[in-house]
Write a protein that binds this DNA or RNA. Structure first.
Length: 154
DNA sequence: GCCAACGTTGGC
DNA sequence: GCCAACGTTGGC
């Protein structure tokens, strides 16, 4: 089992939105960055744990925990001309973009702000700190455990 | 508004 | 294939 961090702008899709989904499960689609795509397609597996992060707000923070419920499969929004994530270079036969499904597990009693992550000697090395643009990032088990503890999970 | 860190595009 | 210019994301 591996650990990941998924980033989203809460104005677009928030952890609360995920909690309100049926079964608290949603497709994680619309990723259009090749490095993130490679993680989605090749490395993220069902059962992996996910830190859910809110970006582009006054206090960006890890706000919740999720579990991957379905490993990578083609992102059909790339094939839909009406979608804002449409990509004419993708096709049913040769998909370019991939998505996974995730389920919300719990909202962190205390969200863990980026400012705290930056100051922690172990969390400092997370891609979040200086590769903030990467929307899907690997997280070590140690980093995952530290963040869940800082977040108030026993 | 500014800057860092990319990612993309286009000329050659 | 290389590089310059430009665009985008995200933090502050």
């Amino acid at each position: 089992m591996r650990y990941w961090l998924f980033k989203t702008e809460p104005g677009c899709f928030s952890f609360r939105n995920l909690l309100e989904c049926p079964e608290q499960t949603e497709h994680w689609d619309g990723v259009r960055n090749f490095q993130a795509r490679n993680f989605l397609r090749d490395e993220i597996k069902a059962g992996d744990r996910v830190l859910f992060y809110h970006s582009s707000i006054p206090e960006p923070a890890v706000v919740g925990l999720c579990t991957v419920t379905r490993e990578g499969y083609p992102d059909h929004t790339a094939l839909n001309p009406a979608s804002e994530h449409f990509d004419p270079k993708s096709s049913f036969e040769k998909p370019i973009w991939y998505m996974v499904d995730i389920r919300a597990d719990l909202i962190l009693p205390n969200e863990v702000p980026l400012a705290v992550i930056r100051e922690h000697p172990v969390l400092l090395s997370m891609p979040l700190v200086n590769r903030s643009r990467l929307s899907i990032q690997p997280v070590t088990e140690e980093q995952f455990l530290i963040i869940t503890q800082l977040g108030g999970v026993l």
